Simulated scan of single mutants.
Amino acid sequence: MSSRAYTEWRPALAPGRQVACLWTRRNAGGAEYGQLVVPDGCVDLVWSEAGLEVVGPDNAPRSVPVRSGAELAGLRLRPGAGGLLLGEVPVRELCDRQVPLAELAGAATAERLGERLARAPGLREAAAVLDAFAASLVPGRPPDRVVERAVAALGRAQGARVPELAAELGLSERQLRRRVTDAVGYGPKTLHAVLRFQRALAFARADRDGAVAGDGAVAGERERERGACADRCAAGYGAGAGSGLAEVAVRAGYADQAHLTREVRRWAGVPPTVLLGRTARPGGAVGQDSGAAS
């Protein structure tokens, strides 16, 4: 059995429209490995031996070392919901950054939360403390309904043209771009590309499991490094057998398989067969994750 374990589940207290999931990661005595983290437009609050940190959206893939014995608990916010943690700080300022919670919420708040986390008997209980903390912030930081509508429109397979979307939301194109960039960290065009990439990964996993895939970037129960694509990779995504990828490309909203391949290389740094192959080998050196690994 692999010493690595990643689990996520829906929040019990914080609203699902803002919090996508709670998660834990453990490397119980195994060798240090590099965790591939790919862009998903989300903001994470992570608790580890380094303390409490807020991880902003990524613009490119990165490999994060996970040391032997590492234990982490986290909370992942949906694209556009970063204001729940950041308040008035634009999410764009945290792109490709990982900063202490104390810099955003104040030293006293971070210290009190850290003390509660330290008393938690286990990782899942620690994640529940993060859930309660996020829920406590909701009354003073309601979601931005305009941003929610923009993210939903841009998350559709065919996306939405900026001029039409701006008019629908009662904004100028410039106002829409600024508002989305401040709230998500990406402009509308980039956000659409990231959500489409995540949707393709979700379809690939769902095909293997016989499930119906939702939007991969905001789904609350994504399966990252548990080999969810193993059978599909072997049957349809291997070298010389591109029918599976072609189908996923069409369903996810890409022009064709070549378009999907280019975009996967852009967001994951590797071709689809390699990315899915990594997902299919949970015991290998590198897994695939769509969020912060810290």
Rank of each mutant, 00 (worst) to 15 (best):
S2Y: 11
S3G: 11
S3E: 13
W9L: 06
A12L: 12
A12M: 08
L13C: 09
G16L: 08
W23P: 04
R25V: 06
N27A: 08
A31K: 15
P39N: 03
G41R: 00
E53Y: 11
G56C: 10
P57Y: 00
R62F: 00
P65F: 00
G69M: 03
G69E: 10
A70F: 02
L72K: 04
L75N: 02
R76E: 05
A81M: 09
C95R: 08
R97Y: 04
Q98L: 13
V99M: 00
A107I: 10
E111F: 09
L113H: 00
L113W: 02
A126V: 02
A127E: 02
A128C: 12
A132Y: 01
F133Q: 01
A134D: 04
R141G: 05
P142H: 05
P143G: 12
D144V: 04
R145M: 08
E148Q: 12
R149W: 14
A150I: 06
Q158T: 13
G159V: 01
E164R: 15
E164D: 15
L165G: 03
L165W: 03
L169W: 10
G170E: 10
R177I: 04
R178I: 15
T181N: 11
A183M: 06
A183Q: 00
T190H: 08
A193V: 05
A193C: 09
R199W: 07
R199I: 09
R199E: 11
F203K: 08
F203P: 04
R205C: 13
D207W: 08
G210T: 10
D215L: 14
G216W: 03
V218F: 11
E221Q: 15
E221I: 14
R222P: 15
E225K: 07
A228V: 12
A228W: 04
Y237C: 12
G238A: 13
A239F: 03
A241Y: 13
S243P: 14
S243F: 15
S243N: 14
G244F: 07
A246V: 12
V248C: 01
V248R: 02
R251H: 05
A252P: 03
Y254S: 02
R265T: 11
T273C: 12
L275A: 06
L276M: 14
L276H: 14
L276D: 13
A280E: 10
P282R: 06
V286T: 14
G287Q: 02
G287D: 05
Q288M: 14
S290F: 13
S290W: 10
A292Y: 03
A293F: 11
